[in-house]
Design a protein around this nucleic acid. Structure first.
Lengths: 116, 116
DNA sequence: TAGTTACGTAACCGATTGGTTTATTACAAG
DNA sequence: CTTGTAATAAACCAATCGGTTACGTAACTA
């Protein structure tokens, strides 16, 4: 079993939904209750509750307990590993190291030749 | 419509699968045919073909044509936006800015008090 | 021309996702 | 003890996902 890979699965899957990304963004401003988090969205509370469960299973939020409220708190740590994974590819999108760049330049050169 | 958000959806969704991440990793070594990409995996070629379509729709690969081969080329540019998005949260996982840190420290302080 | 190789398409399947509505639980305030 | 509020649970639904097998097709090869 590869724990790191599984974590990346859960993290990226959690980030693949705009509602969940918006929730994370909101939590950068501090902890919030479920109904507070649901307020900006045109969807029912159970739907938001499900999104929160996805975020929790990815470790991106932690849920507390305050009377009948369950305040959610941001935990950005899983994003660190995601950032590190993506960073492997930095050299491929920076400068002219990009393999697509080489490919497209090749095509361009070919076209110029034909145009002559 | 928000193009950037849609792109992030597609990018993160594409990255959420270990097979697709392995394919991207493989392509850092240069372009490869579909069968070459399929070789390491215990799955049929159509399955790999579907993964490639997901990667293509996310803009993470470009497909060429060389006789009966369809060489796939890495295009890391969408990862740049993904990295930028994640980077918004860097300060939350670095140092002690993490909100969870504060929360857990709060709990710890509470427990100490009770233990007295 | 016939056969082989490399790949895509189509149809199908079970599991998961993202949403709903309708209970149900937990707590606080009268 | 009743009522209201915050949230989860359960059941359901359509759509998507990740895989399969079967078939189609384009291009090289004998």
């Amino acid at each position: 079993m590869n724990l790191t890979e599984d974590k990346l699965d859960a993290t990226f899957a959690a980030l693949a939904d705009p509602t969940r990304r918006a929730i994370l963004r909101r939590l950068t401003g501090g902890a919030a209750s479920v109904s507070a988090l649901a307020e900006p969205f045109a969807m029912s509370m159970p739907a938001v509750s499900k999104h929160l469960r996805v975020l929790q299973r990815a470790g991106l939020i932690v849920r507390g307990r305050k009377a009948q409220w369950r305040p959610c708190t941001l935990n950005a740590k899983p994003l660190k590993q995601a950032a590190q994974w993506i960073d492997q590819y930095r050299k491929f999108w920076e400068e002219s190291f990009d393999r697509l760049d080489a490919y497209l330049k090749g095509l361009q050169a070919k076209r110029k030749k034909h145009a002559k």
